[in-house]
Write a protein that binds this DNA or RNA. Structure first.
Lengths: 141, 141
DNA sequence: TGTTCATTTGCAACCCGGTTGCAAATGAGT
DNA sequence: ACTCATTTGCAACCGGGTTGCAAATGAACA
């Protein structure tokens, strides 16, 4: 995705498209799996982590990215590809491999929804499966 | 639950029942919601956090407790009430209130299971819903 | 184009949950 | 009581995340 498209996405979400923000957004859009702050920091050795951190928080507030807790004690960030008002449609599960420590997006497995008790309102869901991935399983034998 | 019962549970799980372990286990067994290391530390002002930490890790290894990531950037620990070989039966969802920062066990809502792609094997699932709890919702109006 | 003011960025320092090394205390087996 | 492995307490450390503040940048306008 090129600079113009990223810029448009940022503007559509009410975010001023500065240089750093476009860089961060581009990396996230093109990533095939959720990235940590540290991973973004190494991809972007021009910007300090505080700036990236603030950028990510801004994106979170605008629901442009989603935070994923995979238990690796560093939050991962994933771009929300379904823009517009049906962002909930994109809720897929994630898989954390306890061997290679990689977090996979299982994009084609939707999170099964549940009914909350009366009075509870929902903002987001995290469905995180942990185990061993196919690559590590096949390496073992 | 009294000391004898706790001791028995520890022994059944191959854990030597020392004084500190019994204390930690008792708090967790009687807790109505998952507790953080810091919360256990204040309940147990006799033991330092390093000891509690190691005890919790031991319990985790033996699957006597379950770790729950609620996004509050401190891991919560919950006792696995279903002992024996059907521990997976106890997998219920959790709810994190973004207002009062409390983590609820919704014990009577089971985690809907999914089918993993070929080659992936599962060790555990975390189903975490975030939003506003009934108490905070009713306080608002 | 130059000026002004709000926003954003970079840096450095800090916070805090988690983790470790090591010596002292405890516990099980003799 | 003696010995050896395990557990505990303390203190120091680590690393992800967060913040304060001054410099840089950007938008609006004369």
């Amino acid at each position: 995705m090129d600079k113009e498209q990223i810029t448009r996405i940022l503007e559509e979400n009410g975010i001023r498209p500065t240089a750093v923000r476009i860089l961060v957004a581009r990396i996230l859009v093109n990533a095939e799996s959720p990235l940590s702050l540290a991973e973004l920091e190494t991809s972007l050795d021009t910007a300090p982590k505080s700036t990236i951190f603030r950028t990510l928080n801004l994106f979170l507030q605008h629901r442009l990215v989603q935070g994923i807790e995979d238990g690796s004690n560093s939050l991962k960030y994933e771009f929300c590809h379904t823009q517009g008002n049906n962002k909930f449609d994109d809720m897929h599960i994630h898989f954390y491999c306890e061997e290679c420590q990689h977090t996979y997006c299982l994009k084609n497995i939707q999170i099964p929804t549940i009914e909350l008790p009366d009075g509870y309102s929902m903002n987001s869901i995290n469905y995180m499966v942990k185990g061993i991935c196919n690559k590590c399983n096949s390496d073992k034998q």
